[in-house]
Write a protein that binds this DNA or RNA. Structure first.
Lengths: 343, 343
DNA sequence: CTGAAAGCGCTAACAA
DNA sequence: TTGTTAGCGCTTTCAG
């Protein structure tokens, strides 16, 4: 049925013009170069025959692939699916296809994957890996490949990157905790080498200061990764102090999950003994026990924004997206409560 | 750096042969047609120059795209990411690229997406949508497009499909519950129109019979979807009976999540008052409260198996994969317990 | 404004 | 065994 491939020549034959004319009509940029009557006739014939351009021929000729590579650490991490859907939605509408790859946080693999994607001649790359390593970025830019970063700030100039306003997110978390009477609030920090980790730590210090609260170094627990295991380890360390915190702002939801495990292990009730707030609002965290209070990041919107930025880059009209910060908001659920009376 | 495109001619020039010879060497199927000395020389030159074939030219010539389309309902549903990773892993190793699309369970959208993918000339399609509609399947087969189904049995002959052994999964769930002393066990059923729903219901009846347990129609709650909302609704209906069940075998984890919500609403403690077992073992369900006892399906393996089947189809050597059932196993966690003494 | 022709890089039929 | 050639379907000069 939809099997027969109609070519430019087919529609050219039907209208009685040369195939190059048809090509001109079908390409918006060159449509003006053809007389209106012929243009409409060609358009009609193309539609009637169900003409679908052959992407390979187009790509071979123009060396544009209409394909965007998206590189993430791990699809299995629940933050990424919404992001991807946002990206695909807007890119798809402009007839771009996205191809995906997972690095599993292995830098070597990341390099390999980027190379593979360039081998496939992607028109652009969206990196949602979280490393702050600028070398790869610089290479890509030097090669004039369109690039958009998600969740990774960088020193490199003039590069599109889509971030959440981490400081604002941390601030609403601390505000909430402070309003509940907490004064000894600790932060479980992501790795400094990741921009998100870095920014959230800074945001935390700032927010604590704004409330006139003490923020000793011991109350910022550094982690090697945004993982459950690290979150668990960190909370245990945090509670092993003379006057332990009564509330935790975790670097992300995974770490918050680890905090749940740790508080079970320590026989601490959340939220009675300890309040925990996460960051990201991944799917499912509303079904934890207790449901997680967390900073909700508009993941899908971020994906969409990244795709828009990419489209801007590709269209050549430098839209100067630059850095764009989306504002998160707090979702209060069951994991936060009044400060325990004893403290 | 890696920017310059090396073509067949470049390496041909370097060796001093014609480009078609180079092509023959590089294509495993035709390598035998060229003398060993030249072959090795060409291979060496190709590697040295860093030759990377131009996929567009190849595809234009052969009309093979080395691309596989994967269609799922919704990436945001935690069952799919592991599946996708399994698929990508094995397909990637054979230099295939996968492109993804989400139907959001909209049949019209599914058709559109399939058409779009064929427009992109995918070499094959992997459908992980759960509908039992055979029409689309038939169309695809008639057009000789390689096709693999995941989690969807079909009447159509001679088609590869990768399933979980649903009957076995349900059976281990029922075994477990029966061993805990439960006798009034209910099943929250997925839609009959989906093969998984269908098969699990049959499996449930069978397993109950095997234990000599009663299985009245009222204890199989039909749902419109494998969703949290439906699971919640179903459990509430189930408990509103003269002698309500003491244990639930949910059709999948999402429905089990809904059961958690329902038992809260009904003031029922899980597992003290009611035992719940899920199906799939999605990420995160081990962190629910209580951690969900569920039938663990080897999602990633299923994805890998689907990809293998696809590769088999593509290679032409009809490997007669046909229907393949992977065996799930039970993961006992906190949501199941002894039958309440009062019953 | 429109047609002719070249060629993107590759494979496959045909010659030598 | 190797070289020659003709396109795959498209865009893009260059003529007319």
């Amino acid at each position: 049925m939809s099997n027969e491939r109609i070519t430019l020549k087919d529609v050219a034959a039907k209208v009685g013009v040369h195939s190059s004319t048809v090509s001109r009509v079908l390409n918006p940029a060159t449509r003006g170069m053809v007389s209106p009557e012929i243009a409409t006739a060609v358009a009609a014939a193309a539609k009637e025959l169900g003409y679908r351009p052959n992407l390979f021929a187009y790509s071979l000729r123009t060396s544009r692939s209409f394909t965007i590579g998206v590189i993430i650490p791990d699809l299995t991490n629940p933050v990424f699916p919404p992001l991807i859907r946002g990206i695909e939605e807007v890119l798809g509408q402009s007839n771009y296809t996205v191809i995906l790859a997972n690095t599993d946080n292995d830098p070597a693999r990341e390099e390999t994957l980027i190379a593979a994607m360039r081998g496939r001649q992607v028109d652009g790359l969206i990196l949602a890996t979280a490393r702050r390593d600028d070398k790869l970025v610089r290479d890509i830019i030097d090669d004039k490949l369109a690039l958009v970063l998600i969740n990774r700030a960088t020193q490199v100039e003039n590069i599109d990157c889509i971030l959440t306003d981490d400081a604002a997110g941390i601030r609403v978390a601390v505000d909430h905790l402070a309003a509940l009477g907490h004064r000894r609030i600790a932060h479980i920090a992501g790795p400094e080498r990741l921009s998100t980790g870095h920014r959230r730590i800074a945001g935390f210090r700032h927010a604590m200061a704004a409330h006139g609260l003490d923020c000793p170094p011991a109350n910022i627990a550094a982690c090697d990764a945004f993982s459950e295991a690290e979150g668990q380890r960190a909370l245990i360390a945090l509670m092993d102090q003379p006057s332990p915190p009564t509330a935790i702002v975790a670097g992300n939801d995974m770490q918050a999950l680890g905090c749940y495990a740790a508080s079970e292990a320590l026989n601490l009730n959340c939220p009675a003994d300890i309040s925990i707030v996460g960051f990201n609002d991944m799917p499912i965290v509303d079904r934890l026990a207790p449901p997680l209070t967390t900073v909700s990041v508009p993941l899908r919107k971020m994906g969409a924004a990244a795709a828009q930025a990419m489209l801007g880059r590709l269209s050549g009209e430098n839209p100067k997206t630059g850095t764009m910060e989306l504002t998160p908001h707090l979702v209060v659920r069951g994991s936060t409560g009044q400060v325990p009376p004893t403290s």
